[in-house]
Simulated assay, not measured.
Amino acid sequence: MSLTPTSRSPRPSRAAPPASPPTVSPVLELNVGGEFYTTTVGTLRKLPGSKLADMFSSSAKACTDAEGRFFIDRPGTYFGAILDYLRSGQLPKQHIPEVYREAQFYEIKPLVKILEDMPQIFGEQVARKQFLLRVPGYSENLELMVRLARAEAVAARCSNVLVCAVRTEEDAAHCAESLRVLEADKRLVVKFGPWKAAPAIRDLLDSVRMDIEAQGYQVAYEHCSKKTFQPKSGAYEYFYTFQFTWW
């Protein structure tokens, strides 16, 4: 007896489920220190672990302004450059130090690394600041100079601060007697050095001027001449006058 397979009726085909609409990242309006920006949550969360991504995570407490915009209490001028990088990887072409500072604050680590390789940041962070770390008491001396200048500013247009800069131990030995004479005459001197690094005295003095100007002061320096500076012993070539102008 032969077995004939029974025919089966075809099963009805199931309808495919409707396609889900593409996920759209919500649009946000931001108030960054008074500057207004429009972006998406996806852009702000582009780099997980960054401070900016954490600010707009689902568990974060949002701070809003009177108009309902999300508020970030930070200077907003350079925030656009941060957004441009997160959106498309675009790098800033100007205001590099300012954008670098904001990238550090928001912990946008890939952008920070790229900017550190740019000449403006490399020169400041790797060259100049590393040199100044080798100058003993540099920051403390800057503070002392400002204090001395402000103390002499009463009813005066300018204040002068006397600075002694010595690069080597031999230089320090040459001006030691002059410093003793000035101390006996109760003339205050801010002494820099010696240091173990390649930059010369002029490089140090330029750095002092730059860092004091960065605090908002108007300052210039000049070499003390024999006519204007005559301690009882020589070595005047190691002494400089920094002049603060108030008005």
Rank of each mutant, 00 (worst) to 15 (best):
L179P: 04
A16H: 13
L182I: 06
Q94V: 08
Q104P: 01
L133F: 10
K129M: 14
R128E: 07
R187K: 12
V126S: 15
V154F: 13
K191G: 01
H223G: 08
A16E: 15
S7T: 13
P48H: 11
I212S: 07
K226M: 03
G80R: 05
G89W: 02
T64E: 05
R157E: 15
E222G: 07
F56P: 01
L47S: 02
G234P: 12
C224E: 09
D185Q: 04
F239W: 04
K226W: 01
A153M: 07
Y85V: 05
A62S: 14
L179G: 07
V208A: 03
G137N: 07
K61N: 09
L205P: 06
F131I: 04
L144V: 02
D203P: 07
P21F: 00
Q230H: 11
Y78C: 05
R8Q: 05
N31D: 15
T168G: 03
F56E: 03
D54W: 10
T39M: 02
R134C: 11
P17Q: 06
L30T: 01
L182A: 11
L162M: 09
A15Y: 09
F122I: 10
C175V: 10
R147G: 00
I201Q: 05
Q120N: 11
E29M: 02
H223Q: 12
M1F: 10
A155F: 09
Q243L: 03
S13E: 09
P26A: 06
E98R: 12
K61T: 11
V154S: 13
V24K: 13
V41T: 13
H95K: 12
R14M: 11
T38E: 13
Q125F: 11
F36M: 02
R101W: 00
T64G: 02
M210K: 07
Q230V: 05
Q215N: 07
T228R: 15
V41L: 15
A214I: 13
L115S: 10
S139Y: 08
F229E: 04
A198T: 08
L204M: 03
T245Y: 07
A200H: 06
A165W: 00
E170P: 01
T39G: 03
S207T: 01
R180W: 03
E29G: 12
K227Y: 06
I201Y: 03
Y37F: 13
F192G: 00
S13F: 09
L182K: 09
P199V: 04
R134M: 14
E222I: 00
R45Q: 09
E143M: 10
Y106A: 01
A151F: 05
D185S: 05
